[in-house]
């Protein structure tokens, strides 16, 4: 009995009392998603971080993180514009801040500020020149109902060499905005100036693994957005892609958090030299 009294019982308390699956409870932060295309209007989505929940929660509850009453301004060297909030169903969450009074111009620098309660976030970005795709090639896969899309482009020595492909589905049943194509961020440091880059269907919160394929289905209709960006924007999207690919992989878990050019918050403010291509499969 002495063994039980003086060793096992205290040890049991030591083992089970000190530790649990402890998760950190931290205060929320501001998350800013903003971009301005060459020739396009600025678009900004403002949310707060989503607290960690162990129990299953409906995806639609993420709308609760949306910030609808922020003061969002974008300014270039000459003008400052306060963006207007409006409901836009194709985005998730379905609320954006935008304006029709300011368009992105190549070579210009744009400053973003977001004020909401005690939060103040700011960032700067530059809009580079437009980069274009020479052609797209649609090839069959082993599954005859699916197609592989490949973009062919010639590297322009005048551009910054930081590229990304975004894809928007023409879907009416789920929110569908431009999302980064898996492995669609790349740095052209190859000597060969002709590039062949596969473009894949992005994942979505509204797709289950059963109804998602990285290839495109016959009959699909999408718009591909090809962007040229600066190194800061590239670093953000590269870290986003790393996290997206690795954070759910127990063998190679993501080690670093996403980079951000937002001071006072998380997320990105990116300038794009963008070109758009509708593709029907």
């Amino acid at each position: 009995m002495w063994f039980l009294k003086y060793f096992l019982i205290p040890l049991n308390f030591l083992l089970f009392a000190c530790q649990g699956d402890d998760l950190i409870d931290v205060s929320p932060q501001l998350v800013v998603e903003g971009w301005i295309d060459n020739g396009g209007f600025p678009v900004v989505i403002v949310t707060t971080t989503v607290p960690i929940r162990k129990e299953y929660t409906d995806v639609s509850s993420l709308e609760d993180c949306l910030v609808r009453w922020a003061k969002v301004t974008v300014s270039d060297e000459d003008t400052t514009v306060v963006l207007t909030g409006k409901v836009e169903e194709k985005y998730f969450p379905s609320y954006i801040y935008t304006t029709g009074q300011l368009r992105g111009e190549a070579g210009k620098c744009y400053r973003l500020t977001v004020e909401y309660g005690d939060f103040f976030a700011e960032a700067e970005t530059t809009v580079p020149h437009v980069a274009r795709v020479d052609s797209f090639k649609v090839e069959p896969t082993n599954d005859e109902t699916l197609c592989q899309l490949t973009a062919c482009l010639t590297d322009d020595s005048f551009s910054s060499n930081y590229y990304a492909f975004f894809v928007m589905e023409n879907a009416s049943d789920i929110p569908s905005s431009f999302r980064l194509s898996p492995q669609g961020i790349f740095l052209d440091n190859a000597e060969d100036s002709v590039l062949r880059i596969p473009v894949y269907m992005p994942t979505s919160l509204f797709k289950t693994p059963e109804n998602y394929s990285r290839y495109f289905s016959v009959g699909d209709s999408v718009i591909v957005k090809f962007v040229n960006m600066d190194s800061v924007s590239y670093n953000f999207w590269k870290s986003f892609e790393d996290i997206r690919m690795l954070s759910r992989n127990p063998l190679f878990p993501a080690l670093d958090n996403m980079e951000s050019n937002i001071r006072g918050g998380l997320g990105y403010w990116c300038g794009y030299g963008a070109s758009y291509y509708p593709v029907k499969f």
């Binding site: 998760l23 931290v26 971080t49 989503v50 919160l205 996403m258 998380l266 997320g267 990105y268």
Partner: peptide, 28 residues
């Protein structure tokens, strides 16, 4: 294990913002 501090909605998906490396422990 390394737990996230919170998630964030970026580009239509949920992304983790991790806390300190191996600062959390699984239950016994």
């Amino acid at each position: 294990f390394t737990a996230p501090k919170h998630f964030m909605l970026i580009n239509g998906t949920l992304v983790s913002e991790f806390g300190e490396f191996n600062a959390n422990r699984l239950k016994p």
